[in-house]
Design a protein around this nucleic acid. Structure first.
Length: 170
DNA sequence: AAGTATCCATTTA
DNA sequence: TAAATGGATACTT
């Protein structure tokens, strides 16, 4: 997990800022929020050394990100390289990506979905370790009390995204 | 409402 | 390999 394979980093321009998409040879490996502070990290390498498939993935990623920001369903995603995570994390992320648009789940529900209702904290940890916050909708997972909980990429994003999806935050 | 106990996964020694 | 830490929880007082 802690082996950072060489990966490509491409910018994903959106109305909300520039996201940075990370690609490994296996697929989309991570997505970085604009986080205003270092939004324009020119990490984006121009893509001459980038394989064609990565470019194609990037197209899908860009589209998906923009749709997600607009509160619309994600039609198609590039392959996600979740190998950077543990088996448990992958399981959690799979559940998260299965959450319907505009629907929210509690950490307890997610834990139950993977067969370990008591692993709610572990689920939270897995969400925090989620490298692709937007496309793997950890923002649709609320705390048990229907509270907002936390969010690695910035709590403000979580609220904003939920509101755009029409989720009433109580 | 606040504090304490619990439980799983991850990280570190 | 084993022990310690963390956490976005849940329960109890």
């Amino acid at each position: 997990m802690r082996k950072p394979a060489e990966k490509y980093m491409l910018p994903v321009p959106t109305e909300d800022g520039i996201f940075i998409a990370h690609y490994s040879s296996q697929g989309l490996c991570g997505l970085e929020f604009p986080t205003a502070s270092k939004a324009r990290n020119n990490a984006a390498s121009s893509a001459k050394d980038i394989p064609a498939r990565v470019t194609e993935w990037h197209q899908r990623t860009s589209g998906a990100v923009q749709r997600a920001l607009a509160g619309k369903p994600l039609s198609k995603l590039p392959p996600l390289d979740v190998s950077c995570g543990t088996a448990f994390q992958q399981q959690v992320w799979a559940v998260l990506s299965g959450i319907a648009l505009g629907k929210t789940l509690s950490y307890g529900q997610v834990a139950s979905a993977i067969g370990k209702p008591k692993a709610v904290r572990a689920v939270g940890a897995a969400c925090g370790a989620n490298p692709i916050p937007l496309l793997v909708p950890c923002h649709r997972v609320l705390a048990a009390n229907r509270k907002i909980g936390g969010f690695s990429g910035g709590l403000e994003w979580k609220q904003k995204l939920l509101q755009r999806e029409g989720v009433a935050l109580g």
